[in-house]
Design a protein around this nucleic acid. Structure first.
Lengths: 140, 140
DNA sequence: CTAAAACTTGACTATTTTAGTCGGGTATAT
DNA sequence: ATATACCCGACTAAAATAGTCAAGTTTTAG
């Protein structure tokens, strides 16, 4: 059970922005260099972040990206959502009448997986980007 | 971020056993029919469960599998462990000095991912197989 | 005005992982 | 003896992942 790199890099890049913001836009090139993430890959990621209104862009020289919300207000769950990183740990369909393993009833473990999803999602809901920046000595 | 079907089916099958145990061994064939899981796939899963001492087998006619521990004592984390379903949500290597993104320092989000892993793992640690069987009206 | 920096976008691809299947066993109760 | 059920390694098709590539557009410094 692992998070994909897109989500991981997204959180990483946004944390980087929060640290190095200083009012003006942060370029992907800088993030790429500091965090060791491929520039091309970052572009793809930020496209999604922009579409989902996590960041806004400034074009041209000295352009880059700016956080729409402050790190204190930006929930990690918002970031993951922007990248379609659903925390849906298993295949049972939540709502459909004919769910789970093709049978018409809920599978024996159905409620358990639901509980798990809630448990994980609430973690992401309650974490703000600013929380990642606390007690960070080795900031790169 | 999702659990693989092996883990899901393992929990499902063991829950099934807990319900239909009745002292004698439970055959994979029965589990397969009740839970709608391929028999061939179940065999592969139970091989692992046996190796990891979650179940023991009885060969021959009327054979099958028996839970080693009672459902009250069997932690879900034990089951996942048997199937190599590590909850290691990201790629950062936990211990190595040169971790994360090839740099020598911990990445900016490192501690956060560790926290996430702990959060999820503790969920599995604290759940017992017997917990899944409570308030189950639709038992299949 | 123009060149360079930086964002924009869709398409493409190699690799890895997943979710199984297959085939040929071995043990044992009846 | 023979059917039932466990045992086990190898195999494979399909999907997901982790990126790369190409071909732009926009803006601003000089």
């Amino acid at each position: 059970m692992k998070l994909n790199t897109k989500s991981r890099y997204a959180v990483m890049a946004l944390a980087d922005m929060a640290v190095f913001s200083s009012d003006n836009a942060v370029s992907l090139r800088d993030i790429s260099l500091r965090q060791g993430i491929s520039l091309l890959y970052l572009e793809q990621i930020f496209l999604r972040l922009k579409k989902n209104n996590i960041v806004k862009s400034v074009r041209g020289i000295n352009g880059g990206y700016i956080l729409v919300k402050s790190p204190k207000e930006l929930k990690i769950s918002d970031i993951l959502l922007a990248l379609d990183q659903k925390v849906k740990t298993i295949g049972c369909k939540k709502d459909s009448k004919k769910s789970c393993n093709g049978k018409s009833t809920k599978c024996i473990t159905h409620d358990f997986w639901d509980e798990l999803d809630i448990h994980i999602n609430s973690f992401f809901e309650n974490k703000k980007l600013s929380d990642l920046l606390k007690n960070r000595e080795a900031r790169i």
